[in-house]
Write a protein that binds this DNA or RNA. Structure first.
Lengths: 209, 209
DNA sequence: TTGACAGCCTACCGATCGTTCGGTAGGTAT
DNA sequence: ATACCTACCGAACGATCGGTAGGCTGTCAA
């Protein structure tokens, strides 16, 4: 058997780089910064990843892979489409609490990818969006979801959530603590309501498109 | 009388810098880049703004001022609170179409401000959020709006819109044109529905909180 | 035992970064 | 004519950037 990478440094580099890129972006993060988190030389980083771009790509790929795995696990689960969407809202909130760096990286990539979208650059998160839109379409095909545009609904749902989580540290300073705590508590319920009101057709079959 | 800034270079610099910062962020934009857009030396940029940070601050302040002016104009208009919120949705969409750089800068600042929020750094857009939350609170005080958390609703509305507009260039490549066009058309209607469903209490007085 | 290679190092490269400096051109006020 | 101002410039500063070259060490299969 081939026994490459027996130190696990590459994986540690990806994890460190994720945190740094999330905090200061691609241009704001230097290879030296990444190397220092593992107390190794800068050129050692370039031994594992041939360039800064490749390291960044590895970070994106790693995040995208995890997200795809999570959403596929939900989609292949036993729930119906409405239940899957509710589980997805829970997944969103849990991930933002446990892995806040992910949200930052995704948003940064969304911003940066905009500028170079014409350079035929790979977009790591399109399979993720495809899976989500797939759930919506599936529910619509079975007559359980309202005929809203799948991609639009997903973008609005993701937008409401990510924008909220990104704003939290800033808004925390602007709001009295009591209001802030209530806002956090209400957030997940509000996302769920977004699913119920705008997507799921009630058990009585009524629909107001 | 003192005759400062008779060339208008400072204003031109702010406008150029806004575009560049929007495209590649603070770290991704150099003073040299800004100077070249006006065909002047980079030291001349530093004559108008003592540092890169100060130039960036001027860009943010300029955007924040315009946005505050716009939202105050709506708020002091003749409409009731529901009409003001509808006008605000229209303002959002129009601005994103006419001044797309603004959305990018605001989102980037939201991301970057997160990291240094503990350094007591000024947050230029809090008065803007305050004005918006004020409209919601005012409508609630008059019994016209549902008792949703004002800040939460505003963040969800802004998030849904900004995330959507930011994603447009990327999503355009992933979607068949016919779906893409429909998505654009439905976006404003969907935001308006967000206001109607989750905020405004219908004329019959019914309310489902 | 030996050779291949992974991992990590020091040393160094050219380029670019933000910033500082001294100086010039042209206008205005005294 | 003197003094002072804004606007702008080119040169240079030290620091840092991403990346390269080459050498040392330890592991492991042949």
């Amino acid at each position: 058997m081939e026994e490459k990478n027996h130190t696990g440094t590459s994986e540690k580099l990806v994890q460190s780089a994720e945190k740094l890129f999330a905090g200061k972006g691609f241009y704001g993060t230097s290879i030296r910064d990444v190397a220092e988190t593992l107390s190794i030389a800068k050129s050692s980083v370039l031994h594992h990843f041939a360039s800064k771009e490749k390291l960044y790509a590895a970070v994106l790929q790693n995040i995208a892979d995890e997200m795809i795995r999570e959403i596929r696990a939900i989609r292949q689960g036993p729930e119906d489409e409405a239940g899957q969407m509710r589980s997805f809202v829970g997944l969103l909130c849990d991930n933002s609490r446990d892995r806040p760096d992910r949200d930052l990286i995704i948003l940064r990539e969304l911003l940066d990818n905009r500028a170079r979208v014409d350079t035929a650059r790979k977009w790591y998160f399109s399979p993720y969006l495809e899976e989500l839109a797939g759930i919506v379409r599936s529910g619509q095909d079975k007559g359980r979801f309202k005929p809203i545009h799948p991609g639009l609904f997903i973008l609005h749902l993701l937008g409401a959530h990510h924008y909220f989580t990104i704003s939290l540290p800033t808004v925390r300073q602007l709001l009295p603590p009591v209001f802030f705590d209530r806002m956090i508590r209400d957030h997940r319920a509000e996302l769920t309501r977004m699913v119920e009101d705008r997507l799921v057709i009630g058990p009585d079959g009524r629909d107001n498109p």
